[in-house]
């Protein structure tokens, strides 16, 4: 389903060009879960952003089924982002002015695939049923993260990208949230690519890729 071929990415910094990614290739099939680990600055977030169409590569291809995301223009990548890929951000990135119920429904509505029953199921499974009419600022960090996950899963994306989804949570909450993600991924048969520092989390993935200095170690 997902094929990443020979991705290169270089940033300009004050100290000259810095090669973040130096020829990354990997693949992921439907229903498969993959942990992306590595030191800070090893390039794992950048890789995730490139796959998610949030950033562009200098070189290489990102094939989602037969579509080369790297070759799309801005509008094309936006279409992939709202239609096929779901991203769970480390910072949640909820829309503060929308109620929880609307935040959960938001991306599905963007994609034109809003299914109230499924959204309700997600809310229930995430334990958010009593919070639906609140605003994000009234929720704790863990609750907000669960809203972000529900929002990502509501349109049933083919590929879920998660950047430290439990990085802001305590260990116990993180474990519960992770259980939920994996459970739902299994049900929707989406692919999951997760960036994490946590060895424990990485261990729960089917596969694991370790990045070191922009290359797969």
């Amino acid at each position: 389903m997902l094929t990443v071929e020979n991705i290169h990415k270089t940033y300009a910094t004050a100290d000259g060009p810095f090669a973040v990614l130096r020829g990354i290739s990997l693949g992921l099939s439907a229903g498969e879960t993959l942990a992306l680990t590595g030191e800070s600055g090893s390039g794992k977030s950048t890789l995730l952003h490139i796959i998610g169409g949030l950033d562009t590569a200098d070189q290489g291809r990102v094939l989602l089924d037969d579509t080369d995301i790297a070759a799309l223009d801005d509008d094309g990548r936006a279409a992939i982002r709202r239609g096929s890929i779901g991203v769970v951000f480390q910072q949640f990135n909820l829309i503060p002015s929308l109620k929880i119920v609307d935040n959960i429904a938001f991306q599905a509505r963007l994609a034109g695939r809003y299914d109230p029953a499924w959204a309700a199921t997600l809310a229930e499974r995430m334990g958010l049923t009593s919070q639906l009419n609140k605003y994000p600022e009234q929720l704790s960090g863990g609750q907000q993260q669960r809203v972000a996950i529900a929002r990502t899963l509501a349109p049933k994306p083919r590929l879920v990208l998660a950047d430290e989804p439990t990085g802001n949570l305590d260990e116990e909450t993180a474990a519960i949230v992770m259980d939920l993600i994996l459970e739902l991924i299994r049900e929707t048969q989406a692919g999951l690519l997760m960036v994490t520092h946590s060895q424990a989390l990485a261990a729960r993935m089917q596969r694991r890729v370790h990045l070191r200095a922009g290359q797969i170690a």
Binding site: D74, D75, A78, A79, R81, R82, G83, V87, N93, L110
Partner: peptide
């Protein structure tokens, strides 16, 4: 956020 979620610029 809206752009990240796929609203075209």
């Amino acid at each position: 956020t809206l752009r990240a979620l796929g609203v075209p610029l």
